[in-house]
């Protein structure tokens, strides 16, 4: 196997930077498509990160740790769902509270884990394909979560566009009253969507603590949950554009670091702004298309559903 070139190495760091964003954003996309706005992504990610890292530290099993990370995110999502869907609390306030709660809870649980070392998720080399020059190391020598994030995008896309469950999900997010009138279980659909969002956020967190870092650091998500939330809106709730946005953001983050590294004469604060500014501009341009917004934006987002009539 030939040594990968510098540009391939940079591309690999872009992939690792983008992968947690893809997970968190695609989970939130499904949640929001059902009409639920969960602002607690950051908190769910942190709980996912700490619970998976704790699990791998205690039991040493990476697959189990990933499942536990997902479960951690889902428990947080369940809490959110119970408060907003069953008790009809405000989604915005509850989501913000969930982030604050998740930050504190993960810090508490993770106290003993600070400084603990872990080797990271094993890389899975796809036979034959991973031997290809350039393309091999770029696409076929990753850990399981990177492949999963790539498969998740078309899967969610097909689910939304082609499957009956996806149709019901979109319909519930468009008008819960109409869906209820037709006899669909609005609250149940929203619970499932919220739990899926929690599982994805948990996995995004698990990726950070088990593959990206790999270690536990307090508040290690560093705002990625909020970026994921923004990506969903600017990608107009379309999985393909979420992938694009995540890689654009990840790409510019890494490139500006390298730019700073080789000493481009621009204040570093400006360089650090670059990923945010570029991503927002590009995705705003995408969302200018009125028809696209009308087709994909969940009209009932953030609204509590009272099944009275």
């Amino acid at each position: 196997m030939s040594d990968p070139s510098t540009s391939v190495l940079i591309a690999l760091t872009v992939i690792t930077a983008a992968t947690p964003l893809v997970f968190a954003a695609i989970g939130e996309l499904i949640t929001e498509r059902s009409g639920v706005l969960n602002l607690g992504v950051e908190g769910m990610m942190l709980v996912g990160a700490v619970s998976s890292f704790l699990c791998v530290h205690v039991y040493g099993s990476a697959p189990l740790a990933l499942l536990v990370g997902m479960a951690g995110g889902m428990v947080m999502a369940l809490l959110f769902g119970f408060l907003t869907l069953s008790l009809q609390a405000s989604q915005v306030a509850t989501g913000l509270a969930l982030t604050i709660f998740g930050t504190g809870l993960s810090a508490l649980v993770g106290q003993s884990l600070i400084g603990v070392a872990y080797g990271g998720l094993p890389k899975l080399h796809i036979p034959v394909l991973s031997e290809l020059p350039t393309v091999g190391p770029l696409l076929f020598q990753h850990d399981v979560l990177v492949y999963a994030s790539w498969l998740l995008i078309p899967a969610v896309s097909i689910f939304l566009k082609r499957s009956r469950a996806g149709l019901v999900l979109r319909a519930v997010g468009d008008s819960h009253d109409s869906a209820h009138a037709l006899g669909y279980r609005v609250i149940r659909v929203r619970y499932f969507a919220t739990l899926f969002g929690g599982a994805c956020s948990g996995l995004a967190g698990a990726y950070l603590s088990m593959a990206y870092a790999p270690m536990w650091v307090e508040n290690m998500t560093a705002g990625r949950g909020w970026i994921a939330l923004a990506l969903v809106v600017f990608a107009v709730w379309q999985p393909g554009w979420v992938l694009f946005g995540a890689y654009l953001f990840g790409g510019i983050t890494i490139l500006q670091l390298h730019g700073q590294g080789i000493g481009i004469n621009v204040p570093s604060q400006l360089m650090s702004m670059l990923p945010y500014v570029t991503t927002i501009i590009v995705l705003v341009l995408i969302s200018l298309n009125q028809g696209r917004v009308r087709r994909n934006a969940p009209a009932a987002i953030g609204q509590a559903f009272h099944p009275t009539t």
């Binding site: 009956r164 149709l167 979109r170 319909a171 468009d174 008008s175 009253d177 109409s178 869906a179 009138a181 037709l182 009308r294 087709r295 994909n296 934006a297 969940p298 009209a299």
Partner: peptide, 13 residues
């Protein structure tokens, strides 16, 4: 009880 963001055939489905 229609869903504005869906197509005619999706609404009927």
């Amino acid at each position: 009880s229609l869903f504005e963001s869906l197509t005619v055939v999706e609404n009927i489905a």
